[in-house]
Nucleic acid binder design. Structure first.
Lengths: 353, 353
DNA sequence: CTGTTAGCGCGTTCAA
DNA sequence: TTGAACGCGCTAACAG
């Protein structure tokens, strides 16, 4: 007695809908899956009824039977300060156009959390997975189980050496460009803030800096000093502020600073202000990420745009290709950054040799 | 031949695991669901094997059979500028402790998207739904279908009049407090930026302002002027900047401005700077949301903290109560805000009557 | 073009 | 304490 012919009853299954329309439930199923063998008229009738009654076939049963769902898993490390954040809408829209639904898991930048999210997406028979700033290597068991299950996987700007099928930011060239720009303003002695020797992100960026010096026949280590963030427990802003004294160091005379990101740069600007150091007259500052707020500060923050729109567009394209069974190729796709010259970087304090 | 006794075969189902352990699959099921009737020894043996083999029962089949999953649906309007963003981790952690998994849908602030997300969560037999800054009324068909399906639903700071089971920000009292603070600094003529007559948020805040004036026996409309945002197409920052001229209006002499949020306030500060208007000497500024960056500007932004931590803690508590079958009560829970006096609001330009 | 049968992996109910 | 039948809602394959 779970379904009756009563018109007012809720429609909960294809069976209900079928009896309601005086069809067999297999006909409904065929319409649902776009199979041939149903008359045009019946099709439109079924579709109209589905629309009108707001009927949606049970995703759980569907996924169980088909072995795949229309869910696309998105792994996000954090939700605030994510430079890709607002561009995610592009991904969502593109996926929706193909009938997929994006479901995000926030991993708090934790490797274990990310691995668990991968596992859940596999368990849910997701149609694909996109992981942002991933910490998982291709050899990680959870990554393997995703790929072994045949689920397309795209890494966007992974924090480790990019596994195959990644879309990456060209940090190296971006930094080289920034340093060239500083050279053109007469700078030579540069301090980096927050770019440690560890991690893929930092290494790539330090490499770009070295390249810039090398292109002029100089050795970077004679002109560049690395200052680590003051305290890992603090926020990026607070860390930037707390590092002002270390950056403005009497033993080393930088005329410019390259920071790990805009938040650190903004905090540093505040710290320098307290110290009476003027930006850019005394010290030039270059951020990274092109946060919107940077354009509304005084001075307006010179920064590097990591092109989140391009990154996400490329990732979307790759994912959809994989889902369609096309091979997007294993080589990581590298997206160039763009320098945004504004006011926080200016001519060097004094001409240098 | 879908499962063999071969030890090296992948374990994909309870049947596989059962044959592997020389048990019946119903015993596995009982362990999985914590039912009695399985010896301690067998239980530990099963659990150990599950751990070791990384076996997870198929969520789809489980949900299909039980009529509910361990997914908690989270509706988020946007991902950038969300003042609750970083506190979401608290929710995730609390849910995980109870065995639930948060899955977020980004709705882009769109009513249709939110309704669809509700529908998908219902279709997936989510164990609960939390919607942030919702635009859906309790009478919306998709909301009804969620509640009729018996799925606990909590609205956090809805943009409309709070449906039952909401957790809200006390905007009215918050604004009253802010205005009182401005009074204490000698201000009387205030301009609001971005607080229109439309919308629940704005109305509550305007009401709080009126209350503050009324408490002193004044009529707000004689002292308060509302300036709308310049252009809905722009970002909040850009809108704030573009509104500087309208705020600094020769026909009205505000000594203080209350903005709809910190982003608008930061943009406005920039616009005022271009106009040669000093903050706070010429004009005091109060933001809203307590974005972290506000504390690193010059001047440091005086703002109102909407207590996202408290909000989310309350929402989490309510959701878990509902899931446990307890009734958290229908009355909206109202969380007080907190004024953060910093440097962008100072004494009024000149003593006023 | 339409109806039938089988089974996806699991949990509940009843029997042993 | 353990085993077996049944069905959740759907789709693939096969009959008619």
């Amino acid at each position: 007695m779970k379904s009756t012919k009563n018109t007012r009853d809720a429609i909960r299954s294809t069976t209900d809908l079928a009896t309601r329309l005086h069809l067999s439930r297999w006909t409904i199923s065929r319409v649902l899956n776009g199979h041939s063998g149903v008359s045009e008229e019946t099709q439109t009738r079924v579709r109209a009824a589905m629309q009108e009654l707001g009927f949606q076939p049970n995703s759980l049963a569907r996924g169980l039977r088909k072995g795949t769902t229309n869910i696309i898993g998105i792994c996000l490390p954090e939700i605030e300060g994510l430079y890709l954040g607002q561009k995610l809408e592009f991904l969502r829209r593109a996926l929706a156009a193909e009938g997929f639904h994006a479901m995000a898991a926030i991993t708090n930048g934790d490797l274990q959390e990310e691995a668990q999210a991968f596992d859940r997406f596999r368990n849910l028979r997701a149609a694909g997975v996109v992981s942002f700033a991933s910490q998982l290597t291709a050899r990680h068991p959870r990554v393997r189980s995703i790929t072994e299950a045949g689920i397309p996987l795209v890494f966007v700007d992974p924090t480790i050496r990019p596994p195959k099928g990644s879309v990456c930011v060209d940090r190296s060239t971006g930094m080289q460009e920034a340093v060239e720009y500083l050279f053109s303003l007469g700078h030579r002695h540069i301090t980096t803030l927050g770019l440690g020797p560890d991690g893929h992100y930092s290494r790539d960026r330090m490499q770009g800096i070295s390249h810039a010096y090398a292109a002029h026949g100089w050795e970077a280590r004679h002109f560049v000093r690395q200052v680590p963030l003051a305290n890992e427990g603090l926020s990026h802003y607070a860390n930037g502020r707390a590092s002002a004294a270390a950056v403005w160091n009497a033993n080393f005379h930088p005329t410019a600073v390259l920071t790990v990101n805009d938040r650190v740069a903004i905090g540093l600007m505040d710290g320098l202000r307290s110290l009476g150091v003027r930006v850019p007259e005394d010290l030039s500052l270059v951020g990274y990420d092109a946060m919107e707020v940077g354009a509304f500060l005084s001075p307006r923050l010179t920064t590097i745009d990591a092109r989140p729109d391009e990154l996400i567009a490329a990732a979307t394209e790759r994912l959809l290709q994989s889902i369609r069974g096309e091979d997007p190729g294993a080589a990581p796709e590298v997206i160039p950054t763009r320098l945004l010259p504004r006011d926080s970087a200016g001519p060097a304090r004094e001409p240098e040799a």
